[in-house]
Amino acid sequence: MTERVPVLKIGDVLLVSIQVDLEDQMVLDLQEDLSDRIVATGARGVVIDISALEIVDSFVGRMLATIASISRLLGAETVVVGMRPAVAMTLVELGLSLGGVRTALNLEQGLGYLNSARDKQLGVPGFTAGSPDTGAETR
């Protein structure tokens, strides 16, 4: 009965854009949905956009770390993008460093990172077919 956070698929990347203040149950549901979708779609990357989140407490922070670990086990890399400055400063004070979670300033850079990581893996520099342009390379 609670809302669920939508998981979108773009190429081989799953995109999660969190737009509402998260209830704990939604966080747990998201963790589950995402694991299922990674397996179902064979996604190689996950981008979680938290730019709309006004706060990230230890519960959500832990969820981000868990999702990163789970998706790594399933062969996908997670990038958390769009963390607000005030949120980052609060997390530092809280003592949560999100170790092991890859982060990027915004969606564009997050996707760019996933692309270049995949290119390195495939050994094909600059190979970007079938996935959105990173923007960073076109500047």
Partner: peptide, 13 residues
């Protein structure tokens, strides 16, 4: 804004 965020996070915990 930063202090708001800190306080709300503390309250959430």
């Amino acid at each position: 804004l930063v202090d708001q965020t800190k306080l709300v996070t503390a309250a959430s915990e």
